[in-house]
Design a protein around this nucleic acid. Structure first.
Lengths: 230, 230
DNA sequence: ATATATTTCAAACATACGTTTGAATGAGAT
DNA sequence: ATCTCATTCAAACGTATGTTTGAAATATAT
């Protein structure tokens, strides 16, 4: 309940000798949540790894749940912004209706780019994001997540509709639902792929993964309509 | 550690006045695990709902993890057996290579049939199964889950290969990976679909869901090869 | 009916968790 | 130098958890 009355000043000096406690907590929490899951990650583990005091999470964020919420919001917002930007760019470049593949690329690429992060944690963070679609968690999380996703859907569904005029709106939503599932699966279970294929398929090459995902999704979306337009 | 030295005898009298404690625990645990998640479900909640003593889980299963493992194994085994049966049946009926749609139906239908269970819990159990692909859990669970899945893959991948001779093995595996993702998404996040579509799309009609999933997946699998056969 | 093994039970154990507290520390401004 | 506020810190709180225990109850077999 005791919230700080003011935000800690963000290091006025040019180079910060060490990141502010708040940021260190966010970074460490993100990594641990992703690797071990949320319930399995204790505040003690987070604060120890972040070299901060146990009470610091409750001081800076109020609660563990609020910390988790902020860990996610920090990632989701830029991804969705980039999605919208890429879609607009594709529409401008096409001078009207962009090809399905460009629309899908705009949706996938920002999320998959997590994998290409320089540090080793990209994969686990992506895995955490992928799991978000299905994690049984507090209402507040679901609200935050889907309010941010809804904005994206409101731009992408009409774009898909223009690219697939022969499909009913409901059929487009159905298929885009499966597209999201394919992406989430790649994000959250990509490591399983190489395991289950005995190393034949690997998720190491991000560009190749994106190609496979786009090719599959585009073809799935282009399936002949099962609910023809009346 | 203290395991019972013998399995409790399964009610020798014709009609059981009440299910054996062990079975009641499995049923209740399944429902609660599915609804609230595994970590959020305490042994006290399970045993109270099952009208059993707190110690009964440790007596009958050894630990909470072992209980969870058995809850899953009890569901997964029959589903995978039914998958293999349906595939064999489709192959017999086709007198050779069955159409892609029949292969996919054999893979999807047994899992999606969970939804059609008479009791209200079908959905949440299906959701639990769908989450299995990505839950960050103990190694023993992953081992059990994938050892059972591997058996299925060893029959389905060759079947898909025969139905899609123009594709490399690795490309088939990639695409089937997305197929699994689409199915898992439908299983674990089906309720999100109607929420995100403002009720336009709903998962209530199991047969319709299956049709959409098959149409999308078949088309995705049939996408032109990105890695052409040499 | 007696002996034996299985199952239930209430109680306690040990531990881990998120959170709160109140004093100590630090930095900036007056 | 002093005041003021934000931050850190060690310690404790209260609670919930999975598990263990040893006796009581129940069923099974001889």
């Amino acid at each position: 309940m005791n919230q700080p009355t003011a935000v800690p000043s963000s290091a006025p000096n040019g180079d910060e000798p060490s990141a502010a406690t708040r940021d260190r907590l966010l970074d460490v929490a993100e990594r641990l949540f992703a690797q071990r899951g949320i319930d399995a990650t204790s505040l003690r583990a987070i604060t120890t790894a972040a070299e901060a005091n146990l009470a610091s999470v409750n001081y800076h964020f109020g609660s563990k749940d609020a910390l988790f919420l902020e860990v996610l919001a920090r990632r989701i917002a830029p991804i969705n912004a980039e999605r919208l930007r890429l879609l607009s760019e594709a529409e401008k470049q096409a001078g009207g209706i962009p090809p399905l593949e460009s629309i899908l690329n705009a949706f996938f690429a920002p999320a998959l780019s997590l994998y290409a992060q320089k540090d080793e944690d990209g994969k686990s963070i992506m895995s955490l994001m992928g799991r978000l679609y299905t994690e049984p968690r507090a209402d507040e999380l679901k609200k935050m997540f889907f309010s941010q996703l809804r904005e994206v859907l409101q731009r992408f569904i009409p774009a898909l509709k223009r690219a697939l005029p022969e499909l009913e709106q409901s059929e487009i939503i159905w298929r885009f639902f499966f597209v999201v599932g394919s992406m989430a699966h790649l994000m959250s279970a990509g490591d399983v792929l190489s395991f289950a294929s005995n190393g034949l398929c690997t998720v190491e090459d991000n560009e190749k993964s994106l190609q496979h995902l786009i090719a599959f999704s585009a073809a799935g979306l282009r399936a002949p309509p099962t609910e023809p337009l009346i």
